[in-house]
């Protein structure tokens, strides 16, 4: 079970003066259960790429395989793909529309043909997964706080029981605690339920803290693909692409420039604290 992207190209407005080659020969394999961070500057092609993964945009050339089946093949059901690969857009709370939270979350499973009772069961489970208890079910989604609304929107996708969850900047505009709560919940979904997560983010600190693997996009190409430590070692190249490294990478580099023999690979607070402690105790 996996997603395989083979030689995918995508061109906007092909054959016109506005032609843009948004994806250039993308090759990727996303195995089950990974937590992936997708980073890149505005316009680097990351949103176009994730829209290919659930079939919203069709590649100009190349193939995408979901669980070994060609998604552009004749007998492949796009509807099924979209229920298995859930996409949470930026500011998903703008898409809430129902009179109460439970009905809103039921919309997805109902659309997939579930009975009302079945849909409600799935919706309750999804709300539980994002940390919203039964007391929220009958409330209007518009009365909730920003962070709560966003969790309802994420639950709406989770209720379709996806195997892969793609989130496009799920924490933009949330306060630090709200950001941590959402990312912690996503992490536990990935760890406990084995859901594959693709997190599109502009926060290098969040990416360093949560993901197993980082994919870096630049001008429609994959530039780096590796663990956070491996990728952030290239911080100077990342800066040239309009990105950055986590603050901790810069701090460790600052120590090294002063001659400190400290492990410079730390990208999170915990890792940096360990590395500094080790260095202070060393002879």
């Amino acid at each position: 079970m996996s997603i395989k992207v083979k030689n995918v190209n995508y061109t906007y407005a092909e054959g016109t003066a506005y032609e843009i080659h948004a994806l250039k020969d993308i090759n990727l394999e996303i195995p089950d259960g990974q937590f992936i961070g997708l980073i890149g500057h505005t316009g680097s092609g990351k949103s176009t790429l994730v829209q290919h993964l659930n079939g919203l945009v069709k590649a100009t050339s190349g193939r995408i395989y979901f669980n070994e089946r060609d998604i552009y093949g004749e007998n492949f059901s796009m509807k099924e793909l979209r229920s298995k690969v859930g996409l949470v857009f930026q500011y998903p709370e703008h898409q809430l529309f129902e009179v109460d939270v439970l009905s809103d979350v039921c919309f997805g499973p109902r659309n997939l043909g579930c009975s009302q009772a079945e849909a409600e069961k799935k919706a309750r489970e999804a709300l539980h997964m994002v940390g919203l208890g039964a007391e929220y079910e009958k409330r209007s989604p518009f009365e909730l706080s920003g962070g709560q609304k966003r969790r309802v929107a994420i639950a709406g996708v989770l209720a379709m029981e996806p195997q892969v969850l793609i989130l496009d900047e799920p924490t933009a505009g949330l306060d630090p605690k709200g950001r941590d709560e959402i990312l912690d919940q996503i992490e536990s979904l990935q760890k406990e339920r084995g859901i594959t997560v693709v997190l599109v983010s502009h926060s290098m600190e969040d990416v360093a803290r949560y993901v197993d693997r980082i994919i870096v996009m630049d001008h429609g190409e994959v530039r780096f693909d590796g663990t956070p430590k491996e990728v952030f070692r290239h911080y100077k190249e990342l800066e040239k692409m309009g990105l950055a490294a986590p603050q901790m990478t810069y701090l460790m580099q600052g120590l090294r420039e002063k001659g400190a023999d400290v492990d410079a690979d730390a990208t999170t607070i915990e890792e940096a604290a360990d590395a500094v402690e080790h260095w202070l105790k060393s002879k």
Partner: peptide, 13 residues
């Protein structure tokens, strides 16, 4: 009012 919430690192800077 949160002018950088939607921006990439370079845009934020």
């Amino acid at each position: 009012d949160e002018p950088t919430a939607m921006l990439d690192p370079n845009g934020r800077k």
